[in-house]
Design a protein around this nucleic acid. Sequence first.
DNA 1: ATTCCATGAAGATCACCAAGCTCACGACCT
DNA 2: AGGTCGTGAGCTTGGTGATCTTCATGGAAT
Lengths: 253, 253
Amino acid sequence: MEGQEPQGVAGEQVQRRPRVQKNVTRTIASDICADIFPVGSYLPRENDLCERYGVSRTVIRESLKILESKGMVRGRSRVGTVVCGKDEWNILDAQVLEWIGERIFEFDLLNCILEARRAIEPVAAEFAAERATVQEIADLERAWQAMRDGEGDVAGFTDADVAFHTCLLKASHNQVFLQLVGIIQAALKFSLHASNEAAERRDEAIDVHRELVEALRMRDKAAARDCSIRMLDLAARDLATAVKQHSPAKPVL
Amino acid sequence: MEGQEPQGVAGEQVQRRPRVQKNVTRTIASDICADIFPVGSYLPRENDLCERYGVSRTVIRESLKILESKGMVRGRSRVGTVVCGKDEWNILDAQVLEWIGERIFEFDLLNCILEARRAIEPVAAEFAAERATVQEIADLERAWQAMRDGEGDVAGFTDADVAFHTCLLKASHNQVFLQLVGIIQAALKFSLHASNEAAERRDEAIDVHRELVEALRMRDKAAARDCSIRMLDLAARDLATAVKQHSPAKPVL
DNA sequence: ATTCCATGAAGATCACCAAGCTCACGACCT
DNA sequence: AGGTCGTGAGCTTGGTGATCTTCATGGAAT
């Protein structure tokens, strides 16, 4: 979506836009996630980081400040910067989730997210049933249509699913629930990614999503709650298959 | 709690200027919360901010980077820095909540937090009932004792209550729930703050908290859930009185 | 064992260059 | 003549590098 080069003519891929900051931050974060800088260890001196990433100290410092503000590292004055434990990270932060990326499977996070979704989304659906505006219900309908139409395209289907759940949380008109859209996006992204082979499940999911929209339209809290729970049961199955695919070397017994 | 100058003896308020960074960041954030820099407006140029806060441009830039990483502002290259809408802020971030401080009453957040707590804490209590270690239950017991003993001290009681709920979320062994400790802390801090006059309610709260510890000890999920719900009912009453006290000029009809 | 100091890394400042977004001015086209 | 479009100046952020200050630390000296 963003970060495009709209330089019209004679496509020179010179990419003369630096945007060093964001790249360096993401790179350091990825290196931390990849255990290149293990938890509890000090990362190199700022001057060494400058050399390693080929940027000035200012950029390094700003990147470290960002990572520190998200709980991933902790700067100790005149001593060094130490990598914090993963339980101190702001894993609800969308950027942090993005940096973790595929390694979310190693974080034992998806199960926690599913548990949290089971606590939150049915309640959010209830609130949405009594608070959603007609506009918001229309947005949900559009997202559902996108899910139905994007059957062949896995990425398109996932995006539409994410959009659906985002709209649902918005329609709950609760700021706290809305903040949780990030983890739900991550959960959907990495659960659905692997379950694209199960076409019949997807049809079932599409049905449930449609029923939820109808429940909201009827202002039927109980039905909305029920639909949400059924959706999460489907998500649980998807997650199980996704986890199985992603950790093939399961220590059986 | 932190950010103090513990300059022990012979109180020279010379304030040997450490930690400029943190102070500036907090000050800018507070100014944003106080609508000195309203939502949607551009804040002054970085050079002007240097003068205003009496620091170098590097410090300003690092502060803005931190605020940007929390969704409070958005830097537009070579144009300026614009204050984001409050619904874009990472309100689950502990630092952001700290910066908001008392103004949380103006954010219409406490009601949302209570709704979220009703969705989450009973479930967390259930998980704690089946997952808590004996050590964690002992910690909860200690926090409860601190609540009971710290009857005279309002701040002490609040701290103990915060510690109790933090331990409970830890005992749920769910990383997502654990991240929500920040908003629950904020909710308790500002709800209990005002309800210190209701001594009998506090006694009731202490009883319910004790019952919850016992339920965890018995591994009784249903009882734990029930205790959590009753606690939240008490919290709802506290919140109502706190809100009433904080917005005295209620437009009554 | 305690005190003191040299060391080194982060904290902070300053001056500077690069790059591109804005806006206004002027030329060109209708 | 008037409106539109290109262009360039200027301003502001993005990024660099040198420099100074401040202390946390570990080892040396007492």
